[in-house]
Amino acid sequence: MKQPLHILGGRVLEAAQFIGECAALVPRTLAHCPSAYRQRQRVLAQMTRAGYESLPIAAALSFFTGLVLALHSGIALRTFRAEAELARIVALSLVKEMGPILTGMLIAGRVGAAIAAEIGTMNINEEIDALRTMGINPVRYLVVPRFLALIVMLPLLVTYADIIGICGGAFMAKSHFGVSYTYYFRTVTRVIWFQDILEGLIKATLFGALVAIIACQFGFRTRGGAEGVGRAITRAVVSTFVALFVCDYFVTRLMNY
């Protein structure tokens, strides 16, 4: 029986190797980005899948997040008779933190899982080897369109989710705490600064890159048939979630230094 330390060491080495593989994939992907106009159809198709088709679920998620955020904040603020400050808390929480991280997790679960499954299945069916034998670089053909689609669409989705979430908060503020829509939205526009929006968008762009790179790399290293594809999807989603939170922490530290 293996010693616990031996198992732990193996896991750490495996994680380090995966991080190294992802780090190596980034420059290879960026190197092919300038010629992406030649495959604009594939980029647009991926944008549609990652962005447009995620709009309904992103709207539902952010609207209810706005509702819950306003409800919790409102109950706490009521103790101090400060319900009027509700808009400040909802807007800043959503724009700086909740919007990017929740949308990032949504896209990791919805799009990242699909990417890992698609590339993993292609890998098992020798389709990626076939691309190589035809002189087609798999990074250029498979990773670049997904990478570009996600780094473009995730900031747009986050902006959209922020607006819906703030509207959800307004609905709760008006219906439950008697804060007028006019006052709520005037406060929102007053408290949100350009730097707050920038922080959210930087996070969204980095999250998009993380989802694409991690999901693609898990797809490329898929082995072992249908079971292997299932394992790749689970690992891709879980690893992306962890990466998103780690990245979120460092960007927050950096932007609020």
Binding site: M122, N125, E126, E127, D129, A130, L131
Partner: peptide
Amino acid sequence: FQSSALLA
């Protein structure tokens, strides 16, 4: 390829 490896 053995599996034909056509892009599905």
